[in-house]
């Protein structure tokens, strides 16, 4: 059984149809990259999968581990193991990062029938995972994302991913705004987190990231649909030729 099965997904926001029939199958252990021009619906897909209310699903279905994902509340999806690294992480003023993650981990572990970690175990885990993704240790003491630089926010998303150990991790442009070193650190972190029972969906504009995180599949989204899928070489081809030729092939250029 596939971990994620998206079938003919249509979604709209404020009367405007954005996803127009997305099909995608992701198995545990795989890494999928989704590329595509600005405004094509990549973040919308991520939001719909995470359960953001603003988006109305009008058609199609999404199965996660065989279960109807669209019926679940956003927090239930997260506890079931769906993680979204946001393109624009929000700030939570005054909410301490460690407290935030302790509460989140507690909720997720409870859902899995596990007792909460002891304070000592939790602190140890926090330290370990911060090191794994190369997070500046002082960021753990601060309020969630408050006053973080763009790059620090992205790194903190990957740190949270490492802490919460999801089964399906969706990364929405985690690479944009990162300097070369940070990019490598984030990619290293993701590579260390790859495992046979975890899948990644990585939304990106840059083939560069895919040099570090080598995907099993690359998909191209245009105008609310996945119009082409291939392997890593497709990313290279896009880098070279842009999107117009694909748009032409699928008849989307005026």
């Amino acid at each position: 059984m596939a971990l994620l099965e998206i079938r003919n997904l249509h979604a709209r926001v404020e009367e405007k149809e954005i996803l127009k029939g997305v099909n995608l199958t992701v198995n545990a252990g795989e890494v999928h990259a989704i590329m595509g021009p600005n405004g094509s619906g990549k973040s919308t897909l991520a939001s719909v999968l995470a359960g953001r209310e603003d988006y109305e699903v009008t058609e199609g279905e999404v199965l996660y581990d065989g279960k109807n994902l669209l019926e679940m509340e956003p927090d239930e999806r997260a506890r079931e193991g769906v993680f979204l690294a946001f393109q624009y992480p929000v700030e939570l003023p005054g909410v301490n990062m460690a407290t935030f993650l302790r509460e989140a981990l507690k909720a997720i572990r409870e859902h899995r029938g596990l007792p909460p970690l002891s304070p000592a175990e939790f602190m140890k885990l926090l330290k370990e995972k911060a090191a794994l993704v190369g997070l500046d240790p002082s960021l753990k003491q601060r309020s969630v994302n408050e006053g973080f630089s763009g790059g620090e926010k992205k790194r903190s998303e990957i740190f949270q991913l490492a802490m919460l150990e999801p089964r399906l991790a969706i990364l929405d442009e985690t690479d944009s705004g990162l300097d070369i070193d940070a990019l490598r650190a984030v990619a290293d972190g993701v590579n260390k987190l790859r495992s046979p029972d975890r899948a990644f969906v990585i939304i990106t504009h840059y083939q560069r990231l895919l040099n570090y995180i080598v995907p099993d599949y690359v998909h191209v989204m245009v105008d609310g649909r996945i119009v082409r899928s291939g392997d890593k070489s497709l990313a290279l081809e896009l880098e070279e030729k842009g999107y117009d030729w694909i748009k032409e092939e699928v008849g989307l250029v005026a």
């Binding site: 995470a50 359960g51 953001r52 209310e53 509340e73 956003p74 927090d75 999806r77 997260a78 506890r79 993680f83 979204l84 946001f86 992480p89 929000v90 939570l92 003023p93 005054g94 909410v95 301490n96 407290t99 935030f100 993650l101 509460e103 989140a104 981990l105 909720a107 997720i108 859902h111 309020s143 949270q160 919460l164």
Partner: peptide, 27 residues
């Protein structure tokens, strides 16, 4: 913020816990 609550929920927190955390942070 709806987006703050959603962010918390995406990490597995219930809406209620999210609100508690956000309000406590505010105070």
């Amino acid at each position: 913020g709806e987006d703050q609550i959603f962010y918390c929920q995406q990490r597995g927190l219930s809406e209620e816990t999210a609100i508690k955390l956000i309000v406590n942070g505010f105070c």
